Amino acid sequence: MADNGDKTHFGYKTVESDKKADMVADVFHSVASKYDLMNDLMSFGVHRYWKRFTIECAAARPGMRVLDLAGGTGDLTQKFSQLVGESGQVILADINESMLKVGRAKLQDNGVVGNVNYVQANAEALPFPDNHFDIITIAFGLRNVTEKAKALASMQRVLKPGGKLLVLEFSKPQNALMQKAYDFYSFQVIPKMGSMVAGDSESYQYLSESIRMHPDQETLKQMMLDAGFDQADYVNMTNGVVALHRGYKY
């Protein structure tokens, strides 16, 4: 969340707001090639369950338009492509060119063509018409956005009446013991893992810090309501380590 219009958080650091996007871009340029492998290692594969639950809650049907925002390497896009079929459309959008290239190559290698388009886009100013998408998902991307309120308002604008937004993101564990274990794992283990596997401990230090700076469950729910969603709720997973927030536009 930006501070006073010109300062914001980059992990635990305070930086100029207009520099954060480039700093985040550097992180994801660095981690793009090892992103899928590190996701599996860091979460012990559980991220696949979190994403599968998100897909189930989305309830995509043939013919729908879906925006997979901050879609990275395309895990959600691939499944949505199957669900909406030839009459539907999925847009994998990401602000980071490196992630978009990895995602496009991966999906094309997996035979995903035809109903998927790739767009480099900033979540704060989405380049799509009003009332355009039936479903918008953003998985593990909102915490990296500089102006989260602006991004949520942009998503609300391009969502059709009757549509839904699903925000899958790391959140706040619901008991002290889990929080303590999670902190140890995040700051003592993950950066070392990043160094060994991806040759980059600093990026994974930032990613752990960015989780702690992200709004908690109730705060994000209120931000979605403030952005114009008519209703919002959330479901905790893995004791609140991750939460799926759902916003509805009527």
Rank of each mutant, 00 (worst) to 15 (best):
D22Y: 01
D22I: 05
A25W: 06
F28D: 01
F28V: 04
H29T: 14
H29S: 14
S30C: 12
S30A: 14
K34M: 11
L37P: 07
L37M: 13
M42A: 11
G45M: 13
G45F: 12
V46N: 12
Y49H: 13
W50A: 00
W50Q: 02
W50H: 01
K51A: 09
K51L: 06
R52F: 09
R52N: 15
E56K: 15
A58N: 09
A60I: 09
A60L: 09
P62Y: 08
G63A: 13
G63K: 12
V66W: 01
L67K: 10
L67S: 09
L67A: 09
L69P: 03
A70R: 00
A70P: 05
G74P: 03
G74K: 06
G74M: 00
D75S: 02
L76A: 02
L76Q: 02
F80S: 06
F80T: 10
F80N: 01
L83M: 15
L83I: 08
V84L: 07
E86Y: 08
S87M: 12
G88Q: 09
G88D: 05
I91L: 13
I91E: 13
L92F: 11
D94W: 00
I95F: 15
I95T: 13
S98E: 15
K101M: 07
A105I: 08
A105R: 14
A105E: 15
L107Y: 05
L107D: 05
L107G: 02
D109T: 14
V112C: 11
V113A: 12
V116A: 05
Y118W: 01
V119N: 12
Q120D: 03
A121E: 10
N122M: 04
N122A: 03
N122C: 10
N122W: 02
A125N: 14
A125I: 12
L126D: 13
P127L: 07
F128S: 02
N131P: 05
N131I: 01
N131R: 13
H132R: 04
H132T: 10
D134K: 12
T137R: 07
I138S: 00
I138E: 01
A139M: 03
F140V: 00
N144F: 12
